[in-house]
Simulated scan of single mutants.
Amino acid sequence: MKISTKGRYGLTLMIHLAKCHGKGPTSLKQIAKENQLSEHYLEQLASPLRNAGLIRSIRGAYGGYVLAKEPMDIKAGDIIRVLEGPITPVEGIEDEEPAKQALWLRIRDAVKDVLDTTTLKDLAEHNDDEPQDAYMFYI
Rank of each mutant, 00 (worst) to 15 (best):
Lys112Phe: 00
Thr117Gly: 11
Asp113Glu: 13
Leu67Thr: 02
Met72Arg: 11
Leu103Met: 13
Glu43Gly: 11
Ala32Lys: 00
Arg108Cys: 04
Glu96Ser: 07
Val90Asn: 04
Gly60Met: 11
Glu84Phe: 14
Asp122Lys: 05
Gly64Pro: 04
Tyr65Met: 07
Val114Ala: 12
Trp104Ser: 05
Asp113Ile: 00
His126Asp: 04
Ile79Met: 06
Asn127Thr: 08
Lys75Gly: 05
Glu96Ile: 05
Asp116Arg: 00
Pro98Ile: 09
Glu39Ala: 09
Gly92Met: 05
Tyr41Trp: 05
Ser57Ile: 09
Gly63Ala: 13
Thr117Glu: 14
Glu96Asn: 07
Arg106Tyr: 09
Asp122Arg: 01
Thr119Asn: 06
His40Asp: 13
Asp78Arg: 02
Val66Arg: 01
Lys69Pro: 05
Ala68Met: 06
Lys100Ser: 12
Gln30Asp: 13
Gly64Tyr: 05
Pro48Tyr: 10
Leu54Val: 07
Lys69Asn: 11
Glu43Val: 09
Asp78Asn: 15
Ile55Ser: 01
Ile58Glu: 13
Ile79Gly: 05
Pro89Asp: 06
Gly77Ile: 06
Gln30Tyr: 10
Glu70Ser: 15
Leu115Tyr: 08
Ile58Met: 11
Val111Gly: 02
Lys33Tyr: 14
Glu39Val: 00
Val111Phe: 09
Gln36His: 09
Leu42Glu: 04
Thr117Met: 08
Asn35Arg: 13
Val66Ser: 08
His126Trp: 10
Val111His: 00
Glu70Arg: 14
